[in-house]
């Protein structure tokens, strides 16, 4: 990680991989008002793939909000991730069509196979598992996506096999 350039040296960010100058710049790029929060969080997520705790500290100082408040907002919206994302993001569709076609079974198997809950990342940082709403290809139900790839007409077993291909 880059040499720390920050002056604040708060104990929390001293021990992390977050470069606070980068985050400060993201904050500075927006107006200093609470309404800027969501765009700033989007930028942070873009950079790190998720919202690191230490980055939230810096955003909080910058926008004069509390971390708890920001966390509340971040959890309110599905788009924000609070843990580092694995190499492959698995989205299991739970839209109506997929739900009827057995999406829950797929989730159950993947959770146990990868030993994670929804929104968690495997210890080897390979996979992050999510449940999402309709992915827009209902004719293929039930559907999952792994990264950019879409896989349809799955059974729990097939889903497991699909995922295992990415494990290499």
């Amino acid at each position: 990680m880059s040499q720390k350039t920050c002056e604040c040296q708060e104990s929390k960010c001293q021990n992390s991989d977050i470069d606070c100058a980068t985050v400060k710049q993201m904050v500075a790029a927006h107006e200093k008002k609470p309404a800027s929060l969501i765009p700033v969080l989007q930028d942070v997520q873009q950079e790190y793939g998720y919202l690191p705790r230490e980055a939230l500290d810096i955003v909080a100082r910058g926008l004069n909000l509390s971390v708890s408040n920001i966390y509340g907002v971040a959890t309110f919206y599905k788009q924000f991730r609070l843990v580092p994302q694995g190499e492959h993001l698995i989205k299991v569709c739970h839209g109506t069509a997929c739900h009827v076609a057995g999406a829950e079974g797929i989730s159950v198997v993947l959770r146990s196979d990868l030993d994670v809950e929804d929104d968690e990342t495997t210890d080897d940082m390979k996979f992050t598992l999510e449940s999402v709403a309709c992915l827009g290809c209902c004719s293929l139900a039930p559907v999952i996506t792994v990264g950019e790839d879409t896989h349809g007409r799955l059974t729990p077993d097939k889903a497991k096999k699909v995922v295992s291909k990415y494990a290499k």
Binding site: R53, L56, S66, V67, S68, N69, I70, Y71, G72, T75, F76, L82
Partner: peptide, 16 residues
């Protein structure tokens, strides 16, 4: 502390 998540999942919690 603050509200986190929404709907049925809503919960009072600390950050993370």
């Amino acid at each position: 502390i603050d509200w986190t998540y929404r709907g049925f999942e809503t919960q009072v919690n600390t950050p993370y």
